[in-house]
Amino acid sequence: MATQAKSNTKATPKDNHAAASDSNSPISDKMQDTLHHSVDALAERVANTEEKLRHGASSSAEAIAEKQKAVQAQWKQSSIRRYAAENPLASAGIAFAAGMLLTSLLRKK
């Protein structure tokens, strides 16, 4: 009867973990402290890196937006744009000829 009661009470992994955390071993305490410090230091470094990346991405996005506005303003004032709008067929012919020339120069024989 005593063996039946003993075999019915099995230790679960949760119980084993609780028992291990209750131990007062100086080695396990030191290891636990060291691991906590390592995780905290790593978390701080990751947070700093994330902040730097976010700041860099934000400033890059702002710079790209400014550059895009400048290019759009320049394009609106461009004589090429005006010529293409006034002469669409000639513009298409010039683009086709430029593409053929470029293809023939870059083609390997």
Rank of each mutant, 00 (worst) to 15 (best):
M1T: 11
M1I: 12
M1S: 10
M1F: 14
T3W: 10
S7I: 01
S7D: 06
N8V: 02
T9L: 06
T9I: 08
T12Q: 03
K14E: 15
D15T: 15
D15V: 14
N16L: 15
H17Y: 14
A18N: 14
A18E: 15
A19Q: 05
D22G: 09
S23G: 10
S23D: 10
N24D: 15
S25F: 11
S25W: 06
K30L: 08
K30Q: 11
K30F: 11
K30S: 14
M31A: 13
M31R: 13
D33N: 07
T34G: 11
L35K: 05
H37D: 11
S38G: 13
S38K: 07
V39L: 12
V39D: 08
D40M: 03
D40S: 12
D40C: 04
A41F: 08
A43I: 04
A43N: 05
E44R: 04
R45F: 07
R45L: 05
R45I: 11
V46E: 04
A47I: 11
A47N: 11
A47P: 08
N48M: 06
N48W: 02
E50K: 13
L53C: 09
L53R: 13
R54H: 10
R54S: 13
R54Y: 09
R54G: 08
H55I: 06
G56T: 15
A57D: 14
S58Y: 15
A61S: 03
I64C: 00
I64M: 06
A65S: 14
A65R: 08
A65Y: 11
K67N: 08
K67W: 01
Q68T: 15
Q68I: 10
K69F: 04
A70Y: 02
V71K: 00
V71E: 00
Q72V: 02
A73Y: 00
Q74P: 01
W75D: 02
W75N: 01
K76D: 08
S78I: 09
S78Y: 01
S79V: 02
S79Y: 00
I80G: 08
R81H: 09
R81P: 02
Y83M: 04
Y83Q: 09
A84V: 01
A84I: 03
E86P: 00
E86Y: 01
P88D: 01
P88K: 07
S91L: 02
A92T: 11
G93P: 00
I94F: 09
A95D: 06
A97T: 14
G99A: 10
M100G: 14
M100V: 15
L101K: 04
L101G: 12
L102E: 12
T103H: 03
T103P: 00
S104W: 01
L105K: 01
L106N: 07
R107C: 05
K109G: 11
K109A: 10
